Computed example of a mutant assay.
Amino acid sequence: MIRPMQATDAPDVLALLAWMDDAPEREVFAPDARDEQELRGECEDRVCLVAEDMDGAVQAYCGLAPFRDGLVLEGPLGDGDLPGLLARAVERADGLPVYAFAARDNLGAREALEACGFTPMHTTDFYTARVADLARHARIPQGYAATEHLAPAAYRALYRAAEDGWAGRLEWTDADLQAHFAREDVRLVALTRAGQPAGFAELELNTEASRADLTYLAVHPAERGQGLGRVLLALAAAEAAAFPELRDLRVRAHDHARPARALYAHAGLIHCRSVVTYLRDDTEGEA
């Protein structure tokens, strides 16, 4: 039976999250909480569904949360009637676009998603290396200067110029950008030449996971071909190295981002995981 999640289901959903954590190939986008009380609070404002067996035991979970221009699917997580669970979730989406994320090797979840009309958009590959190994190459090229701050207009212009597919930050106000970079877990490393931004690397520090995530690496088109990508990668690692608890630097690149993938390979980063992005958009083709 498929039904809305209840507060008493929290222990069973936590068990499913632990089951996912035990094997990388089971990964899907899922609730962050790994604590019963936090999980209940996290699910309060979401559409959350479970599938149970004949004995009433929870076999699978999925949920819907606001995301971009629509919703993001949490799950499907577990065994049992995953297509039925997803179909019920899609009914609750009210026609909004629904995104989903699953490990490339999570064939069960991916088959269920595709059976319910989700279309794979792209694959994102993740790479990792020791912070210390990358940081020892940190240097500032002659003619350039390093800074930890960019004016919102300068950041936005470089963000726009660096990658055609980047759009999320373009809608941020100056106040949004300033608040983001004021966070304790966010760092920006930028290079300028003659006072003009040439590139930047943006980090999010995850001390609980002993890891820094490189969320953006941008080089202005006019500055490409001079190795600034690798320079920024090393400078970002040096910034992370200021925190002894951060051992690893993780980066990501979509399957179409060949220059980024080549940069990470040449810098010695090792591939660690791949995630497929899906979309179900019932609004496509509407007038």
Score class of each variant (00 low, 15 high):
Phe29Ile: 01
Asp32His: 12
Ala33Phe: 10
Asp35Leu: 03
Asp35His: 09
Glu36Pro: 04
Gln37His: 11
Gln37Tyr: 00
Arg40Phe: 00
Gly41Tyr: 04
Gly41Gln: 15
Gly41Asp: 14
Glu42Asp: 04
Glu42Ser: 07
Glu42Arg: 01
Glu44Ser: 14
Arg46Asn: 05
Arg46Lys: 14
Cys48Trp: 07
Leu49Phe: 07
Asp53Gln: 06
Met54Val: 15
Gly56Trp: 11
Ala57Thr: 15
Ala57Ser: 09
Ala57Arg: 14
Val58Cys: 04
Tyr61Ile: 05
Cys62Pro: 01
Gly63Tyr: 03
Leu64Ala: 05
Leu64His: 02
Ala65Cys: 05
Phe67Lys: 06
Phe67Gln: 08
Phe67Trp: 15
Arg68Asp: 10
Arg68Ala: 15
Arg68Asn: 06
Arg68Lys: 12
Arg68Met: 13
Arg68Pro: 00
Asp69Gly: 00
Asp69Arg: 13
Asp69Thr: 08
Asp69Cys: 03
Glu74Cys: 11
Pro76Glu: 12
Pro76Lys: 10
Pro76Trp: 13
Pro76Ile: 12
Leu77His: 01
Leu77Lys: 07
Asp79Gly: 09
Gly80Trp: 02
Asp81Pro: 03
Leu82Ala: 03
Gly84Trp: 03
Gly84Glu: 09
Gly84Thr: 07
Leu86Met: 08
Arg88Ile: 00
Arg88Leu: 09
Arg88Asn: 02
Arg88Tyr: 06
Ala89Tyr: 00
Val90Thr: 10
Glu91Ala: 14
Glu91Ser: 12
Ala93Ile: 10
Asp94Ile: 02
Asp94Phe: 06
Leu96Ala: 15
Pro97Ile: 09
Pro97Asn: 10
Val98Glu: 04
Tyr99Met: 05
Phe101Ile: 02
Phe101Asp: 01
Ala102Thr: 11
Ala103Asp: 15
Arg104Pro: 00
Arg104Glu: 15
Asn106Lys: 06
Asn106Phe: 07
Asn106Glu: 06
Leu107Ile: 10
Gly108Met: 11
Ala109Trp: 03
Glu111Ser: 09
Ala112Gly: 11
Gly117Asp: 04
Gly117Asn: 14
Phe118Leu: 09
Thr119Val: 15
Thr119Trp: 06
Thr119Leu: 14
Pro120Asn: 03
Met121Thr: 14
Thr123Ser: 13
Thr123Asn: 05
Thr123Glu: 15
Thr124Cys: 13
Asp125Met: 06
Ala129Glu: 04
Ala129Asn: 10
Val131Trp: 04
Ala132Gln: 13
Asp133Cys: 00
Asp133Glu: 15
Leu134Gly: 05
Leu134Met: 02
Ala135Gly: 08
Ala135Val: 02
His137Ser: 14
Ala138Trp: 04
Arg139Thr: 07
Arg139Met: 09
Arg139Ser: 10
Ile140Pro: 02
Gln142Asn: 11
Ala145Thr: 14
Ala145Val: 10
Ala146Asp: 02
Ala146Ile: 05
Ala146Tyr: 00
Leu150Cys: 04
Leu150Asp: 08
Ala151Phe: 03
